[in-house]
C-alpha cells in the first residue's frame, strides 16, 4: 500500500512535469467549451427537442466532463504505459518485483486525479462564463464520475497493454478520442445525428459515460442501464488487459 501511494505520488509529479499532457487534459476541453458556448449559448430549445430539452451549456458541461475523462484515459494513460514498456522502465520495475497491480494502479490513480482536476476546472470556467445548472443530485454525479473514470482508465490500460509502442498508443488514443468527441455526445447534439451515426455512437463508451453523468446531473434520475454498460466496459477491458499485459 505504501508502495502504491509512493508510486502514485511520483507519477502525479511526472504528469505535472509533462506540459503537453497537462494542456491536452486541462485546456483543450476548456477551449471546446468556450467555442461551443459562444456558438450555442445556453437557452433551451423552445420545442424541447435538441439537447434533451435543456440549455446547450447545461447539456455540454457534463458531456465535457466525459470528454476530460476520455482524454486522460485514452490519450494520456496508454501512451505513458506503452512508453514505459518501450523504454525498459517496466523491465526495471519488474526486476524490483513491483507487482503489475502497483504499476497499473498508480497510473489509474493519476488518471482519476487528473480527470477530477480537469472536471473541476471546467465547471469553474462554465460557472464563470455561463449560468449553467448545478448538478441535481451531486452525490450521484460524483459516483457516475468515478464509474466513468474507472471505465476509461481500464480502456486506457487495455490500449497500453495491447499497443506495442508509445507512438502507436498515442495515434490510436487520439483517433478514438476524436471519433468519440464528434459522435459520442460531446459534439453535435445527438438529436441532429443521422440514424447510422446514432447507431455508431451507441457503440462508443463515451456516449454511455456521458449519459451516466448527465442523467443525475439534469434531474433525469440514476440511469441503471448505463451503469451496467459502463461497468461492463470496465470489467471487460480490465480482464483483457490483464490477459495481454506485457512487461517488455
Amino acid at each position: 500500500m505504501t508502495v502504491l501511494r509512493k508510486m502514485t505520488w511520483v507519477e502525479l509529479k511526472l504528469f505535472l512535469r509533462e506540459p503537453l499532457t497537462v494542456i491536452f487534459t486541462l485546456a483543450l476541453p476548456l477551449v471546446v467549451l468556450f467555442i461551443l458556448g459562444g456558438v450555442f449559448g445556453n437557452t433551451p430549445d423552445p420545442e424541447g427537442v435538441v439537447y434533451r430539452g435543456v440549455g446547450a451549456m447545461d447539456y455540454y458541461v457534463p458531456a465535457y466532463i466525459g470528454l476530460v475523462i476520455a482524454s486522460v484515459g485514452l490519450v494520456g494513460l496508454p501512451m505513458h504505459l506503452a512508453a514505459y514498456r518501450e523504454r525498459g522502465v517496466l523491465r526495471r520495475f519488474k526486476a524490483s518485483s513491483v507487482p503489475a497491480g502497483n504499476v497499473v494502479g498508480s497510473q489509474v490513480a493519476v488518471t482519476m486525479i487528473s480527470a477530477a482536476a480537469g472536471s473541476l476546472l471546467l465547471m469553474a470556467a462554465a460557472r464563470l462564463a455561463y449560468s449553467f445548472q448545478a448538478p441535481h443530485a451531486p452525490e450521484q454525479v460524483v459516483l457516475a464520475f468515478v464509474l466513468a473514470a474507472l471505465s476509461f482508465s481500464a480502456l486506457g490500460v487495455l490500449l497500453g497493454a495491447l499497443l506495442p509502442t508509445a507512438r502507436a498508443a498515442q495515434g490510436a488514443g487520439i483517433l478514438l478520442w476524436f471519433v468519440m468527441l464528434f459522435i459520442g455526445g460531446a459534439g453535435p447534439p445527438p438529436e441532429v445525428l443521422t440514424d447510422s451515426m446514432r447507431f455508431v455512437a451507441q457503440l462508443t463508451p463515451l456516449q454511455h459515460a456521458i449519459t451516466l453523468l448527465q442523467d443525475p446531473w439534469l434531474g433525469f434520475g440514476w440511469n441503471w442501464r448505463e451503469t451496467l454498460v459502463v461497468a461492463g466496459i470496465t470489467a471487460a477491458s480490465a480482464l483483457i488487459a490483464l490477459r495481454f499485459f506485457r512487461w517488455e
Binding site: M7, L14, R92, S96
Partner: peptide
C-alpha cells in the same frame, strides 16, 4: 539487486525521487 544492461527510468523523474521510490520497493 539488478542493474540491467537495457533499462531506463521515466525521463522526468528526479534522482532523489528514483532512489526514494526504489528504496520503498524493498
Amino acid at each position: 539487486g539488478c542493474q540491467l544492461q537495457e533499462s531506463a527510468l521515466p525521463d522526468r523523474i528526479k534522482v532523489w525521487e528514483a532512489l526514494d521510490l526504489f528504496a520503498a520497493f524493498g
